[in-house]
Design a protein around this nucleic acid. Sequence first.
DNA 1: GGCAGTATAGGAAATACTCCAATACCGGAG
DNA 2: CTCCGGTATTGGAGTATTTCCTATACTGCC
Lengths: 126, 126
Amino acid sequence: MLELVNCPCTGATLDRLIQPAILVVLAEGPLHGYRVAERIGEMPGFGGQKPDASGIYRFLKSMEQKGLVVSSWDLSDSGPAKKCYQLAPEGKECLEHWIKTLEAYRHGITELLRAARKAAGGRHES
Amino acid sequence: MLELVNCPCTGATLDRLIQPAILVVLAEGPLHGYRVAERIGEMPGFGGQKPDASGIYRFLKSMEQKGLVVSSWDLSDSGPAKKCYQLAPEGKECLEHWIKTLEAYRHGITELLRAARKAAGGRHES
DNA sequence: GGCAGTATAGGAAATACTCCAATACCGGAG
DNA sequence: CTCCGGTATTGGAGTATTTCCTATACTGCC
């Protein structure tokens, strides 16, 4: 038997999609990093496991530097201070661009899948 | 206007998929690195631009170390020596695993797309 | 001979990602 | 009251991944 544990074919990480996922979550309404991470973890395609919080915070920070999101501190609730992020107009523009990109990705994956099935599935109904 | 040039939403790189793409190309028949890169460049989803050859060679090498492919030098034709790769049984197994992974990816992307359209496309039929 | 195209390969930098630790605030158990 | 667990943000460091640039070499063409 083959050990595919360390093989990317197990699909452990499709990390690039965390970025549009953040945009999508924020498009649904302003939210702070911790909840963003939780919401992404709930999304299908992320395997029910929430992504590394560090990574989310870093993404949010870089997105703010790019002007895609704006943040404000939310001290209203009890508990530690929350940095509340919301989508800037540029972020919405970026999200719309992502829609086209995701369509292209899906098309590419569909084609790859077709080719893979054709190549691998030729005869293996054992 | 927003400069989205350096934004991943432009979809410049869906690099992770180069690995199954190599597998698919090799599943269609033995081939050497240079042609593999060209074939991948022709595939939809890679934007018609052929990937970095260095990367392909490195992938092929690591795939050989993992036992997914086997190589042999082809000196039959004129021109520089070609290292011809072909899929090993483990590589085919990996490719079959990739099919499941790609299906999961596509599903995840579909869901993300649905959410993105809902969030961004609410009202902008201008 | 020099140049372009085919073909492989390696170094080094840049980037991305993960794991781990630190800080801080709150509420409840002991 | 003190410690612990959950919420919340952040930084450091190490590893993995990717890209860019370069080197080598062979062939055919001008």
